[in-house]
Amino acid sequence: MARVTLEALRKRYDSGPDIIRGIDLSIEDGEFMVFVGPSGCGKSTLLRMIAGLEEISQGRLLIGDTDATHLPPAERGVAMVFQSYALYPHMSVGDNMRFGLRIAKLARAEIESRVGRAAEILQISHLLDQLPRQLSGGQRQRVAIGRAIVRKPAVFLFDEPLSNLDANLRVQMRIELTRLHRELGTTMIYVTHDQTEAMTMGDRIAVFNGGHVEQVGPPMALYETPANTFVGQFLGSPRMNLIPAGGASPSVWQPEHAAQTALLGVRPESLGLAAPGQGWPVRVDVIEHLGDTTLVYLSAGDLPLCMRLPGGRCDLQPGQQLHIAPHAGGLHQFDASGRRLSTQ
């Protein structure tokens, strides 16, 4: 187990612009850290830099107390699970797991004991003699994790490991990975573009955008107090509504930072029906019944909004005119650059 420290890490290819633009981050020993962000934000590149698969252009990487900036991958004490699983197709499941241990020249008995133990944890003992092509997606994923476990790494790196699985299996594997983290207690860094995975699995989340970190913190802290509109909109589904402050009725919000406030952010579940003449006047466009909740898509003039109402049934009709207002504490104020000012 180890703490991972990134000090002003930068990455650029040849003379191009920085892909990773100076990242300072400390991942605690035994922590489950999730890197989340849209495609091309640099989260996978950063993970590969930690793994040693990409050179670090500038800055320093510490794994434990060791400066790992220029260490080869195998000497960093990290193991990686790839998006494609990257199982060696010509080797049996057992040999896939033994490969790294054989290179490390471990004793045969030690190798067998580690493989046996990992297979037991992941419930793949019966698959050890099979070839990867004979396995299902979920089983392959387990083998890929098993291959990482047997090496007893100080840090596990996961690069979008669930993105090739179907929705049901993804939920199941999400739970299993969380359980595995609890059992092993090893530091884990997990890259995903799926905000549900980020919210449900991480002790902390780092939200990436354009090669830098927008905000780091526990999932609920980020959800409840996003540092800016990007984080506010990236976490949460459907995404946070952003409303220009100028058009809002004074009854909706207390103008604490009135001068600087340019945007108001309200999550769909923080919106509710208001008495006529109060809040924002809107028109109902589409209603989606999700069973436990109802999503109501609205328009306030040209501005599309979304409201989540509790319960699967509601008597609203498309085309209906109504007024909506945020619940107390559900209104986030942002300045013109998108930075958060306060939450009311």
């Binding site: 793994a51 991958p73 195998a74 990290v78 193991a79 990686m80 060696y88 490969f99 290179i103």
Partner: peptide, 25 residues
């Protein structure tokens, strides 16, 4: 797929080992 070779690299294999054990088979 480069992933296979990178996985072998993570497993501690050098270029020779990757060529013999992963690429050629």
């Amino acid at each position: 797929p480069k992933d296979l070779e990178e996985a072998a690299q993570m497993d501690g294999a050098g270029p020779w080992r990757i060529y013999w054990s992963i690429v050629l088979p």
